[in-house]
Amino acid sequence: MRLARFALLGALVGALAAGPALAQEAEAPTPPAQKWSFSGLFGTFDLAAAQRGFQVYESVCSNCHSMRLLHYRDLAGIGLTPEQIKAVASHNTVPLGLNDQGEPITGPALPSSPFRSPFPNEKAARAANNGALPPDQSLMVNSLPGGPDFVYAVLTGYKEPPPGFNLQSGMNYNEYFPGHQIAMPQPLQADQVEYADGTKATIEQEAHDVVTFLTWAANPEMVQRKQIGVRVVLFLVLMTGLTYVVKRKVWSDVH
């Protein structure tokens, strides 16, 4: 009787879980899973990759995409020294409030400044991009259902449209983007950046690096979180065992 009940429950859960898989097949192929330094319970960010990714962001993405939740000082999280951060910041011109005449002024960014935004506001961004708004990248990896794998797949998924595909003007064909039409032209090209550490800048390498950087940007607390988590879980496993033993002892005289 009990077995039958669980079998019924299991079958039901199985059927319900299978539903969405069938429904999604019609849209875009599932992005293939990539190997990421940050995945898994003990995964940490590959800092060299994240720094290369920041280089890609600076020279490519940041021409259209803002990252308004990040500050230059945050780059300490991917291993930049205070001097490097100061240098990186000072290469960027950002608004610095008002001068004594009350006019808005700009100047080199400080470590405490937020990342430079390519456009002063949303309207300006849309006007410069055929009406499309390049989304802010601070939390992009978290806000897209496929996460890092999806972003990587889109960055490397530009192709010639198949014959007969009705591509709207101003749109680009992408294998992995839902509906296969994306307003962003192919952003990454081979050798678009020259990596200081000599890594060969293929499209795949650039995509991999920039996704590592973006994942860090969206989850800067991740490494500390996992480190504390391992300790907390070990402690609680120990406490659970200890409490259970004491419970057995306390209850041993109750019949």
Binding site: F235, L238, M239, L242, T243, V245, V246, K249, V250, S252
Partner: peptide
């Protein structure tokens, strides 16, 4: 002897809870 063993365990448990 059971009581003293239990007390030691309880003490350890109490210390663990305090640390927590």
């Amino acid at each position: 002897d059971i009581v003293s063993k239990r007390d030691f365990l309880k003490l350890t448990l109490g210390a663990g809870a305090a640390i927590g």
